[in-house]
Amino acid sequence: MILVLPGVFAGTSKVCTNPLTSCGSTTSSDTCCYNSPGGQFALTQFWDTNPSTGPSDSWTVHGLWPDHCDGTYDQNCDSKRAYTNITQILKAFGKTSLLSYMNTYWKDYTGNDESFWEHEWGKHGTCISTLKPACYTGYTPTQEVPDYFQKAVDLFKTRNTYQALINAGITPSTTKTYTSAQIQAALKAAFGVTAIIQCSSGALDEVWYSYYVQGSVATGTFIATTPVGQSSSCASTGIKWLPKSGSPAPTTTGGSPTPTGGSGTISGSGYLNAVTSGSGKGCLISAGTWYTTGTCATFTARVSGSSITLTSSKGTCGIVSGVFTCGSGVAASVFTDKSGTLAYSGSTTFYATAVPGGSTQLPVYTASKAVSVSFAWTNV
């Protein structure tokens, strides 16, 4: 792990004289000013519905990928720079506004945004030639990280996929279907070029926008282009654009989710929203930990009489050594429903050592700790 001190002076990206455009007919050996071999950049976006991530009227960031000029790509190019502290790095370089935006629009469907950001940087960011340390004058360790995330967010802000589709009469629905041509026409009308669209189980869930870059990723010019060497996974007809079920834990600029409250009897699919001192503060995520800035996990509740068992995407949920845990190999514990609030051994009160903040996830205990918390069920 590498950290920099807040306020530290960072170096500057190399000044490029007459920079060339990546993937062009003329190439350069100066890979600080000419992105190579990853010269076709894909700004990728998610539309997550189960569980929902991000605002209900916006797509979210997936990543910024330096593909080769034929659609192939390198990955995990520098293990020494596969940093595991993205949040701290952004804060150290004063990127609090960027971090706040990412907490809302760059979401992980399992609730672990930090891990997702680390993955995108390690797999893709380390493969961008113009962001290598040697491409900075007076380089400060990790300064390429905020450059990567800032550029991805800046590009994302120019590609309002939600509004582009709405403007073309394409709306989220559980029943309406559209053709690939209709979706592509809407995106081209909005942005001037076609994109790659991806589907899962017949529903639209990703869009990839392609660019070439003139000069450095940090300081150069991104030029929108038609993708080369990439393919869509969507059928030509019958494509659904499903509505989000409502962001279960939408983040605010302050980094804390707005409480959604509890509604309904505990059964089927739903979220477990944390309530402490009369207010909502986050929710349980898939491993069973309490998180206040991530996306709530979707739990499945199976009811037999008055007994309830729970599972998440990680596996069965149970109380293991006094800790709420979900995972493979976990023995199911029996819970009950008290007016839409989860109860164990007759009590709706669980405990934690503190109210989690930022990227911290905290275990939930059955034995008394400093903070009392209950979990209200919201049906999906």
Rank of each mutant, 00 (worst) to 15 (best):
T179M: 10
S286C: 09
W290Q: 14
T60P: 01
T17V: 15
I183G: 01
L310A: 00
S233A: 09
R302Y: 14
G322V: 04
K80E: 15
F375Q: 01
S180F: 15
K244T: 02
V320R: 00
G327Q: 12
G327I: 10
S233C: 11
T276E: 13
N76D: 15
Y211C: 02
M1W: 14
S201I: 04
D147V: 09
G220Y: 13
I319Y: 05
F350P: 12
G294K: 05
F93T: 08
K281Q: 11
K281T: 11
S333I: 07
K314Q: 12
Y212E: 03
K91M: 10
S28Y: 05
S359R: 15
N103Y: 13
K244H: 14
L90S: 08
C317T: 01
T179H: 13
I166P: 00
W121Y: 12
T49V: 04
W208I: 14
G125A: 02
S36T: 02
G264I: 01
P55K: 13
G38Y: 04
V323S: 00
E120M: 07
G122W: 09
L90G: 07
A189P: 15
N76P: 00
F149V: 10
A218T: 14
F9K: 14
S36M: 01
K338M: 11
S321V: 01
L20V: 04
T72P: 05
Y178I: 01
P133M: 04
G327S: 12
S279D: 11
T309P: 00
N50M: 09
R159C: 02
T360I: 07
K244I: 04
G322P: 00
I196V: 15
P55I: 02
K244F: 09
L20A: 03
S307H: 03
T219P: 13
S236L: 04
T12I: 11
T72Y: 11
K338P: 04
K176C: 00
S216C: 05
K91G: 06
Q184K: 10
L362G: 08
A235K: 10
L98G: 03
T300K: 06
W290Y: 08
Y162W: 04
G315M: 00
I89V: 15
Q143K: 07
E144P: 08
P356N: 11
C77K: 08
L5P: 12
L284D: 11
G358C: 10
T260V: 12
P250Y: 03
A164N: 07
D74E: 12
I166D: 02
I89M: 12
G24C: 03
N35E: 15
T349Q: 08
A343D: 03
A370R: 07
Q361T: 07
P51K: 03
T137W: 06
Y344V: 00
V371L: 02
G24W: 09
G346V: 02
T366R: 00
G138K: 03
G322D: 06
G346C: 01
S269P: 06
P243A: 09
I89L: 12
L5N: 14
T44C: 08
A376W: 07
S210V: 03
Q45F: 00
W106A: 11
V364C: 08
S245K: 12
G278V: 12
L99S: 04
Y212R: 03
Q143I: 11
